[in-house]
Amino acid sequence: MTRDWWKHLVLILGAIIVLAPFYMMVSYSFKSPGEIDRGEGGFFGRQEMMIDPRCVALRQPGRADIEAARARFVGQDDASVQASLLAETEADCSMRPALFNYSKAFTEAPLVRYLLNGVAVTLSIFLIQSVVALPAAYALAKLNFWGRDAVFGLVLFCLLIPVHAIALPLYIGLAKLGLTNTYAALVVPWTISVFGIFLMRQFFMTVPDDLIDAARMDGMSELAIVWRVMLPTAIPALLAFAIFSVVAHWNDYFWPRIVVTGNRDLFTPPLGLREFKGDGDGSFFGPMMATATVIVTPLIVAFLLAQRRFIDGITLSGMK
């Protein structure tokens, strides 16, 4: 430990730089606009009550409000009734900055909807990828058929193609089919994961033939073998692939940015955040960082809980 002090020094310096934006993001999501502007308040901010100017503006007491409230303020002139009402409104509209930021994050934009969209899209992508890739991987690994080598060669070739790179022709195709601005547009290009096929095929190669022959002796059909014998043995590999796939598509910004324009109902979390930034002014740093925190948190928490699996899953591509 003492001999390694310099290693720790270097690594800690690195860690500070790595963590700085996370620190800032979470810290700003707690702070009031004033504290952000002046750069004060430590990590959590002072959490003094603050007044939401927009809330006050929306509830500016009008003539009717003053008339209605006259009974409560007997013997006061209009101006002082208005002042009292204004004070009440301000009291109603004041809250702690942390609460303000997070409640704004969820009310200014349909963040819950975005998050659900994100979950739906990532899960459908993963499910379809598995349903397509597993049987193909099994066929390529364990069945003898004419043309198998050609199919596998094609898989190897397709591994070279990053899907982002062919975004433009894909977009044109989807536009021609009238599919832009639909869930389908978000999912379809990712339904085929060549990497998934390759990965599962490599995994299936390691499953002994005897296991499959035994299943055949037991009278299972080939499809049943895929789902009832191969799938269970492949769970670890599939889990790693799931992590790989979910992380990639939850965080993906490029593709949703292309195929979803304007229709907020289809926004994935990164798109929602982007929109927030687009129309935000300085006073919205807090809510925006709250949104960013909400979007980043699920994967980070999952990662911290199951680090080994995540690291294995993400680095999977490096094994072969």
Partner: peptide, 11 residues
């Protein structure tokens, strides 16, 4: 490894 997991746009 945290930056790898985090949504790049947010970061």
């Amino acid at each position: 490894f945290l930056p790898v997991m985090a949504t790049l746009l947010a970061m």
